[in-house]
Amino acid sequence: MSISIQANKRTDFKNSTNRKIRDEGNFPAVVYGNKTESTPIYLNSADFIKTIREAGRNGVLTLQVDKQKYSVMLHDIQTDPLKNEIVHADFQVVDMKKEIDTEVSLSLVGEAKGTKEGGVLQQSLYEISLKGLPQDIPSSIDVDVSDLGINDTITVADIKVDKKLEITHDAKDTVASVLPPQQEEEPDSGEIQDAEGDVEATKEKDNEE
């Protein structure tokens, strides 16, 4: 069962109205897709954050706009990092019986054994493309890196998902790897001798003076 969230239609698009919406703890948004006419709305920021934390980034929500209900997924969100507030969001209406293509975030879990030997864990891919029914799309996918040694790599092909889902991302793309520790270059023996010679020459010159 999806989680419900209340929204209201926007009919006034003046900048002053948008400022008032934000000043009252709300933010503007739009709902569209699946033969639904694009509808400007606004939601309460605190309610939205609470709902997304509960449902997940890719969770299916029941969006109540006045007397109309929509099954939606959060398609895009814009935030202001300086003010720490939501600027705008896009909600896409989905058909629960039709598969969708979407992006799902990747989260590395575990401690790579290569890091215990001085290696550096590097994540190269943070999202992958998936296809499946809206209710089957996970909010994120955990990638276990515990067995990753130095110079080892995990690719998209190594990621396991539910049989109901299809990974449409390039299977060859690197997700994570452990880089070998960087070694400091030792100075060339010739350079050391030249430096020592310069020091001795400087001392002799100082003694002559």
Score class of each variant (00 low, 15 high):
1 M>R: 08
1 M>Y: 03
4 S>N: 13
6 Q>T: 12
6 Q>L: 06
7 A>F: 11
7 A>D: 08
11 T>G: 14
14 K>S: 09
15 N>E: 15
15 N>D: 15
15 N>T: 15
15 N>R: 11
18 N>D: 13
20 K>L: 14
20 K>T: 14
20 K>S: 10
24 E>M: 15
25 G>S: 05
30 V>L: 02
30 V>C: 02
30 V>Y: 08
31 V>S: 11
34 N>C: 00
34 N>R: 13
34 N>Y: 15
34 N>K: 11
37 E>R: 12
37 E>N: 13
38 S>L: 15
40 P>H: 06
40 P>R: 04
41 I>W: 10
42 Y>E: 05
43 L>K: 03
46 A>F: 13
48 F>Q: 02
50 K>D: 03
51 T>K: 06
53 R>E: 13
55 A>I: 06
57 R>D: 08
58 N>F: 11
60 V>A: 05
64 Q>R: 06
65 V>N: 14
65 V>M: 02
67 K>S: 12
72 V>Y: 07
75 H>K: 15
75 H>I: 00
76 D>S: 02
76 D>Y: 14
80 D>R: 01
82 L>S: 11
84 N>K: 06
86 I>T: 05
89 A>Q: 02
93 V>L: 01
93 V>D: 06
97 K>C: 04
97 K>W: 01
98 K>N: 10
101 D>L: 12
101 D>R: 09
103 E>S: 07
105 S>F: 15
106 L>M: 05
107 S>R: 11
108 L>A: 08
108 L>W: 09
111 E>V: 15
113 K>R: 08
115 T>Y: 15
119 G>P: 09
120 V>D: 08
123 Q>E: 13
123 Q>S: 03
124 S>F: 08
126 Y>D: 13
129 S>C: 09
132 G>C: 05
133 L>K: 07
133 L>Q: 05
134 P>H: 03
136 D>T: 10
137 I>P: 03
138 P>D: 02
139 S>T: 07
140 S>I: 07
144 D>C: 10
147 D>H: 04
148 L>P: 01
150 I>P: 03
151 N>R: 12
153 T>Q: 13
155 T>D: 05
156 V>R: 07
156 V>M: 07
158 D>V: 09
158 D>H: 06
161 V>L: 07
161 V>F: 09
163 K>V: 04
163 K>P: 00
168 T>P: 00
169 H>F: 00
169 H>A: 14
173 D>V: 08
175 V>N: 01
176 A>E: 00
176 A>H: 03
177 S>N: 10
178 V>P: 07
180 P>F: 02
180 P>T: 02
183 Q>N: 06
184 E>C: 04
185 E>R: 05
186 E>W: 03
189 S>L: 14
190 G>K: 11
191 E>G: 09
194 D>N: 11
194 D>P: 03
197 G>F: 07
199 V>D: 12
200 E>I: 14
